[in-house]
Design a binder for these strands. Sequence first.
DNA 1: CTGAAAGCGCTAACAT
DNA 2: ATGTTAGCGCTTTCAG
Lengths: 340, 340
Amino acid sequence: MKGKTIKLSDIAEQLNVSTVTVSKALRGHPDISPKTTKLIRETAEKIGYTPNFMARNLSARKSNTIGVIVPKIAHYFFGSIIESIYDIAFQNNYEIILTVSQENEEREKRHIQTLLSMKVDGIIISISQETKDYSIFETVRARGVPIVFMDRVPNIPEIDSVSVNDRFGAYRAIEHAISLGYKNIGHFAGYTDINIGQQRYLGFEDAMKKHKIPINPEWVCRGGFGEKSGYESFMKLYKENNLPDLIFTVTYPVALGVYMAAAEVGLKIPDDVDVLAFGNAKVQKFLSPPLSCVDQPTDQLAAKSMELLFNRINNPDEKSTKEVEVPTELVLRGTCINNK
Amino acid sequence: MKGKTIKLSDIAEQLNVSTVTVSKALRGHPDISPKTTKLIRETAEKIGYTPNFMARNLSARKSNTIGVIVPKIAHYFFGSIIESIYDIAFQNNYEIILTVSQENEEREKRHIQTLLSMKVDGIIISISQETKDYSIFETVRARGVPIVFMDRVPNIPEIDSVSVNDRFGAYRAIEHAISLGYKNIGHFAGYTDINIGQQRYLGFEDAMKKHKIPINPEWVCRGGFGEKSGYESFMKLYKENNLPDLIFTVTYPVALGVYMAAAEVGLKIPDDVDVLAFGNAKVQKFLSPPLSCVDQPTDQLAAKSMELLFNRINNPDEKSTKEVEVPTELVLRGTCINNK
DNA sequence: CTGAAAGCGCTAACAT
DNA sequence: ATGTTAGCGCTTTCAG
């Protein structure tokens, strides 16, 4: 019963035509008459033929496959994006090869190599938070493989990228807080040498400057983009007895860390400390209190990234690059809503 | 600059050896002397050679690739499992081809075809909630491709599966509730023709029977495994003015739906209605009140599934199948903790 | 509209 | 220890 593979030639033999005819018919090549095509397809169906992906792509030098690299999966933001990407790929008859860097530069590099060796038609990547060496992206470009950077965009010229309008989103959020009367605003900023950290920080700064509120550098805490970072930053300020009235966090997990720390030391949100986050997640409305945030449209990030990539794949000679920004939205729930 | 691919023969030419020698050296075949191997590897590195995955696997008739099919990604449970699977694969030098059925049977079927055509060495699948036709799994078996069912296991004989000890987990949870004095216990059960729904229901039943508490069939609501289902079931009972004191939900998203519905109609959890869920998520501790639940060890699910699959891949002639169960843990937080 | 020839890049089996 | 031969299953010329 062991997998005696059914191949093109099996169909060809049975129908007394050549493998070429079968191959063409199966792919709907106009060369073949509708009648033959129909017959061939029926037989293929009947005997349970499935094309061999490897063989097909080896000879076609094209894989109909897109490689995706993300830092994490078990994370609402990336999970949603990935799901959208899969949907779009499915609709366009593309396969996705998803890889996960786990925020690790070495792993990211190896994944890129793998994707190249798989001859993916293009790559969508959201770089890891620790990626410093961008030379690998040069290699990709040299290989002629289109690459689109998504959300986490490295600071290199002439690349296709899709990101959230981080700066403006942060700006508007802080402006809202200020309109509520907040002045003592802290920012848990993640890493500011990566675009999302940098831009969100700049938005924060923009708003503070515009309203002539000095930024207290002690309240600008750096670290990672995860819960741990939020927790630790909060605890540090708490121990120094130096907590701001409102904390604006660079991501939603950082805010979760703040929630956890606040609960641990018995501080009430939003009364004792208030919180506002960049980044959305379905569960935020179930938090206590429901967390207000700057929502990132994950579906649009996915859609635009795929669109850019498809464009590149279909117009390989196009030189000019595109940097797309998708808009954000301030979603007010149970935090950052009370006048100070 | 367009991708002039570098291949084995390029290295071979440069070093005046045959492609076979190069091929072997690169794969660390003992045939080749350490000296030559070293030389070849260095040259490969220098000229930037990457093996062609397609060609390699076409000729080796083995892909070092595992196909994974899950119903959803943007979901803590599956997200965590997938992340673990990727980690394990990475450590074992396997690639993962992940596909998403979106709880759709047709899509699931197509994905299986794709994985087969990609000649994956094995498949790990968590079937969609609407999958009724199991014949496709026969096809997989006929092809000789190992398949391991994970968490959502269809009711067919002689398969490798890894699932949570659903029945006992549910049993213990309900017993705990009963010990608190609860008698009016409802169950939002998802679909009971799929193993997780069935087993959790049975565990619920076991506990009720053991303690001689009659089950009110009106309080056993079926539907999906998502928020929507929880929301709708709750609303239905609420409108009929027929709410139990405690609702045991088959998954954690269902509980989220209950939280949402309860909030909407102004009912307080846990005082007006109490909730207990099967399934964990990092965010549950941030809910208001923090949701108590039966925790499923996602890392163990992933690890065991991979282990079973590797075993099958390495011992293709082994006939006997294995059904592994991993244990659960009751995690008490802010619900189902007050005596009734 | 159909097919014969050639080859994609690599590896397994069998020499040497 | 290294090379020769043959072929994985398919598609792409190009000739009929």
